[in-house]
Design a protein around this nucleic acid. Structure first.
Ligand code: SF4
Ligand code: SF4
Lengths: 131, 131
DNA sequence: GTCAATGATACTAAATTTATATCATTTGTC
DNA sequence: GACAAATGATATAAATTTAGTATCATTGAC
């Protein structure tokens, strides 16, 4: 029942730091020093963010990562989708089979309603709100 | 990002069936037939519900399980607490250490707000609503 | 006493989350 | 161009949580 996983959390922290940094590139080494995130894990996260065009990477000496968009254009839900998959609070799929009750299930309806609210709230959160 | 886990879901289904049954006791065998839940897993779930006083069990031939309270007194959150632990959408605990940012973290504040709503909604759901 | 039911408990398997490790590639500096 | 400092790509491993199984003991109606 965890809304965000650790990689999303780490991504938020890293992006926040990069956004707040005066340099226009920040290296993994610097981030590791500040954020205390295990280096290889953070590296993986940043590489994914680069692939997904939320960061631009620069190789070679003096390289690092920089934001691509302004902080108010980066949505928390972008990160959640990247690291956690689709925004859903209930799958109703067991062993790759959709639950047969799905059409009528009242529990699902209740959860769907909650989900709708949660997602709408999440969608309003940008990186700028998290600085 | 799953609000309820499978055991909670199974518990809901089992309780709903028991509640709707004309008999005053329902055996695991009958439930397995109807709900298609793996027998040993369902047994475990029912035994827990018995221990937690949401069901009363009857041993021996003709035995089974019966509701203890009326269906509008059984809360979904009771089940969630039993099978999923405390109602929380974010722990902010990594490797048994509370996150040092917890006092000031804006992400946490956002999630806390969402959590508050979610929990208040969940608390309003009884078994009666799920029949 | 037998048999059909649950109680207690230990174990196993699968899936997801959280990392780690290694080698290749790029690029700035000398 | 050699070198070093950075990321890219990718494979693997460890830890945790979720899901499911197996076994034997106990109870109670008949
Ligand atoms: S029983 Fe309802 S909530 Fe559970 S999986 Fe089926 S549809 Fe979804
Ligand atoms: S950074 Fe914020 S949200 Fe993440 S664990 Fe720390 S306090 Fe919680």
């Amino acid at each position: 029942m965890k809304l965000i996983t650790r990689d999303t959390d780490y991504a938020v922290r890293a992006l926040c730091f990069i956004s707040g940094s005066k340099k226009n590139r920040v290296s993994v080494g610097e981030l590791v020093g500040v954020l205390k995130i295990p280096r290889p894990f953070l590296r993986k996260i940043l590489q994914i963010l680069n692939k997904k065009k939320l960061l631009k990477s620069y190789k070679g000496q003096g390289g690092g990562f920089a934001l691509v968009k302004s902080h108010d254009k980066i949505l928390l839900t972008d990160l959640m989708k990247i690291f956690q998959g689709p925004l859903k609070l209930n799958e109703c799929v067991f062993k790759k089979q959709v639950c047969p009750n799905i059409k009528t299930c009242k529990l699902k309806k209740k959860i769907d309603k909650i989900e709708k609210y949660v997602i709408s709230e999440l969608k309003g959160i940008t990186l700028a709100h998290l600085l």
